[in-house]
């Protein structure tokens, strides 16, 4: 599937960018977690969004989604795992599928948080972000799923179905988790191992395992697309919301403070327009 613009992130920045690119007659796909997983969905009431005070985050997201769909923006709910430049565009892996776009807009927020101790050191050596990709490699082995998204219980059940011995670590036991899967109440976790994962420390327990699946609702931009320049924890962008990589724009929380809807929508507008212009020049 080929699109003019692929937007990664379905919050206000991503949908604003998508709307602007559609207005410029570009085909647009938005790849994101379901609305319920977005940080804005947790806002009880947003009072500083100009002209529309008093709506909940969920109501705002529903309006943004309706607006984008009405203009013909396509949506795909899933986790974008990797993006890669190709000749004339980008591949984006959405779990086991691959989509293609000519320009990329990153609006993936900052909800990913800081990496857990041991996460980056042991990435690819037992730490995985993708149950569908790597699950088969852990058949018959102990794995810990660190559930941080609404899809995580489903993915844990999938791993258990493959024959992995799953333990699920999260602040509370989620609905939909198979009753056969032991649950450990844990806010923070630490991943232990020298060269390969040997255990996860979660909720005061040491869980011996060979694999740990960190299932957040989004992959951080640095993991998603290598080579992006950062300014501290945020993506480096210019006034056109262009990153250091040609054809890659960014908007919203991932570019920096303040983490506000109005700022995200405004940046999304700039990113969407500039991405469309970039395509017109190409």
């Amino acid at each position: 599937m080929n699109y003019d613009v692929i937007v990664i992130g379905g919050g206000p920045a991503g949908l604003s960018a998508a709307v602007q690119a559609r207005v410029r007659n570009k085909s647009v796909l938005v790849v994101s977690a379901p609305a319920a997983d977005l940080p804005l969905a947790r806002a009880q009431r947003v009072d500083n969004y100009l002209g529309l005070p008093g709506l909940s985050g969920t109501e705002l997201l529903a309006r943004f989604d309706a607006h984008a769909r009405e203009l013909g923006v396509e949506r795909r709910y899933g986790k974008a795992l990797n993006a890669m430049p190709t000749e004339g565009g980008f591949f984006v892996a959405v779990e086991s599928d691959v989509v293609e776009g000519r320009a990329l807009i990153l609006a993936c927020g900052v909800g990913q948080g800081t990496p857990y101790p041991g996460e980056l050191e042991l990435l690819g050596a037992g730490v995985s972000y993708c149950a569908t990709c790597d699950g088969m490699l852990y058949r018959g082995k102990n794995v810990v799923v660190v559930g941080r998204s609404s899809h995580a219980p489903e993915e844990a059940n999938y791993l258990q179905g493959l024959g992995c011995h799953v333990t699920y670590a999260a602040p509370r036991r989620p609905e939909g988790l198979s009753p056969e899967i032991p649950f450990v109440k844990a806010g923070e976790v630490a991943i232990l191992g020298d060269g390969a994962v040997t255990a996860v420390q979660a909720g005061g327990q040491l869980l011996p395992c060979e694999g740990v699946f960190l299932l957040r609702s989004a992959v951080s931009p640095g993991q998603l697309l290598p080579g992006l320049a950062f300014d501290g924890p945020y993506l480096q962008v210019n006034r056109d919301m262009a990153t250091n990589l040609p054809g890659v724009f960014a908007a919203g929380d991932c570019t920096g403070l303040p983490l506000q809807v109005s700022k995200a929508v405004g940046e999304g507008l700039v990113a969407g327009l500039r991405a469309a212009e970039y395509l017109d020049r190409a």
């Binding site: 190709t86 086991s96 691959v98 990709c133 790597d134 088969m136």
Partner: peptide
């Protein structure tokens, strides 16, 4: 690689 792994399919070319 494996067929169900999106990043693997991206690497193939």
């Amino acid at each position: 690689w494996a067929s169900w792994c999106g990043p693997c399919r991206m690497l193939a070319p």
